[in-house]
């Protein structure tokens, strides 16, 4: 198995600084966050431009070119509900460090994003849900099969579909956590890749608690076979946990400086 893949989540239009930079096409604030995330251990960078209905295509192209040209073609995860913007982004994307990721498809009205990924030889994040959160693992597995078949029909390799069980917030859905972990184990047993927005679990918790809870969850999820996560690489405790789990899982060879590389 390869090392756990962290998709850095910090280039997100919900952040006022990033939103402003995207509107004004000001590269510096975006590149600053890109570099910070690469420096702290992100493999992929998520680029969330929001719905971007008006100028999504042009904005995504600009963002992809700006980030890749300045950051040694770092691989990107193109995150928007605007499909044309994702296609536009892929049209200028440099694949030398990894395929682009389409974020995201689901078993509902976003299922065509699987076709989009297949047509563009991209990776796709596939949410095991249709409308809202799946009620149990049988339902999740049903969607997973549906998404997998759709991808195969369009000629994708199973390894390019990264299934997202949807991490659930602990404050409110505490009784569902083990079920999500068990689903990750099922995906892993099927040899499938998995991912998800990890920090969902600690939503609404005090700021100092969140890294602790996220780290515990990532360790348990990695034990179950989680292969990647959309997360904040600036969270030192989280990244130290991931690196340590990678060593324990024999995903990477131990060296005394393993936390620094």
């Amino acid at each position: 198995m390869g090392k756990f893949i962290v998709i850095g989540e910090r280039i997100h239009c919900i952040s006022p600084v990033i939103n402003k930079a995207m509107q004004e096409r000001d590269p510096e604030p975006i590149l600053k966050r890109a570099r910070e995330q690469i420096e702290t251990g992100a493999t992929y960078l998520d680029v969330n431009i929001g719905p971007a209905e008006k100028d999504g295509e042009e904005l995504m192209k600009w963002a992809v070119k700006t980030i890749q040209e300045a950051c040694d073609n770092v691989p990107l995860c193109l995150d928007t509900s605007n499909r044309k913007a994702i296609e536009a982004g892929i049209s200028v994307y440099n694949r030398s460090k990894g395929k682009p990721i389409v974020n995201s498809a689901d078993a509902g009205d976003r299922i065509e994003n699987i076709d989009l990924a297949a047509a563009n030889d991209a990776i796709v994040l596939a949410l095991c849900s249709k409308a809202g959160v799946s009620s149990d693992n049988d339902e999740r597995m049903g969607y997973c099969q549906e998404l997998l078949e759709r991808g195969m029909e369009h000629g994708m390799e199973a390894e390019d579909i990264w299934f997202d069980p949807l991490f659930l917030v602990i404050k409110g859905m505490q009784d569902k956590q083990m079920e999500v972990l068990s689903f990750i184990k099922d995906l892993s047993d099927m040899g499938l890749n998995s991912t998800g927005g990890l920090s969902n679990i600690s939503n609404m918790m005090p700021k100092h608690i969140r890294p602790i809870m996220d780290s515990a969850m990532v360790a348990m999820a990695m034990y179950c076979g989680l292969t990647s996560a959309i997360a904040n690489p600036a969270d030192l405790r989280l990244m130290e946990t991931i690196r340590s789990c990678d060593v324990i899982k024999n995903n990477t060879l131990y060296a005394d400086s393993y936390l620094e590389i």
Partner: peptide, 14 residues
């Protein structure tokens, strides 16, 4: 010693 081999490469690159 595989772990030292890697460590030494890390130190030299640092």
């Amino acid at each position: 010693d595989i772990n030292l081999a890697k460590q030494l490469n890390v130190l030299i690159s640092q």
